[in-house]
Design a protein around this nucleic acid. Structure first.
Lengths: 148, 148
DNA sequence: ATATTCCCGTTGCAACCGCAACCGCTCTTT
DNA sequence: AAAGAGCGGTTGCGGTTGCAACGGGAATAT
């Protein structure tokens, strides 16, 4: 049994992730033009209100620098506004502009529809799937590496 | 319900994929130094023998150019050998060198062990999980986009 | 046989990623 | 209060990605 690449879980996860992301991108890309990092920043802002870069970095699995640059692009595009934090002047408060809120409103619907579609395709066991995915993430998150 | 990013399947798939890939990389990186594309090319060669670039491209979800460059690096490192195809001189035959075979031998063991470990962490339903993952992939593969 | 079309692999290029260095600000220590 | 350590965000840089264009080779049509 020489080892089969396409039965290898990491490989399949990667393939699934890129394909699904492409599908999703195809649904909103033309309307929004957002990249994946930009989309994540927007989505996080949409239900957190005022947030700093480091918060996003900690929450959505993106490097500081990526969040920083995504935010710069989004500000440039008029989707969010940066403002200084007054207690701690190192921090920067990010906040959606009305324009950004509108966009996310629309995008949220697209995302929800897509999510529903995926669930439908997965059938009744979609919930199980999500749970196990969660399992994988948390296991990997706290370095399950050297331990045995 | 403002839309929760971390219940969004594409997002979670992406996070899971990158984390798992990181875990796997940590296990073999130091020994092999292979990047993900390189690893895929090697793995495919390991159980296909002589293959052309386009075959790999079609099988392992990588752009032509990426396969081409990965192959160049691997040849440079002495893991594979390129040779011209004689029927069709457009094609290039890639083949593992003995050194490359040794590496894949070793790497296959690491991969199998990791796979086993993941299955253990997922518990008895790992099979179900794999099946549904497959489902997602095939659904996405043949453009499930515009079809309402 | 020649021209047109198509295919394979490589390369150019612009964008992006990840990491580390950096600068300014805050907190702690003394 | 001054110095040092620590934190937050940006920027520089090497390497990678993805796409489109290219050049050589094969296949088809006339």
């Amino acid at each position: 049994m020489p080892f089969m690449l396409d039965e290898f879980l990491p490989y399949r996860l990667n393939v699934a992730a890129t394909l699904i992301s492409r599908r999703f991108a195809a649904l909103h890309q033309e309307e929004t033009g957002l990249s994946i990092p930009e989309w994540r920043v927007m989505a996080h802002l949409a239900n957190e209100g005022q947030v700093s870069i480091r918060d996003i970095h900690a929450r959505v699995n993106l490097d500081k620098s990526i969040v920083s640059r995504a935010a710069a692009r989004l500000e440039q595009a008029g989707h969010l506004r940066k403002s200084g934090h007054m207690q701690d002047r190192r921090l920067i408060s990010l906040e959606l502009t009305p324009k950004g809120q509108d966009l996310m409103q629309r995008l949220g619907e697209i995302a929800d529809a897509f999510q529903a579609r995926l669930h439908a395709e997965l059938g009744p066991e979609a919930e199980r799937f999500e749970t196990m995915l969660e399992q994988l993430i948390t296991n990997a998150a706290r370095g399950n590496d050297t331990a045995a």
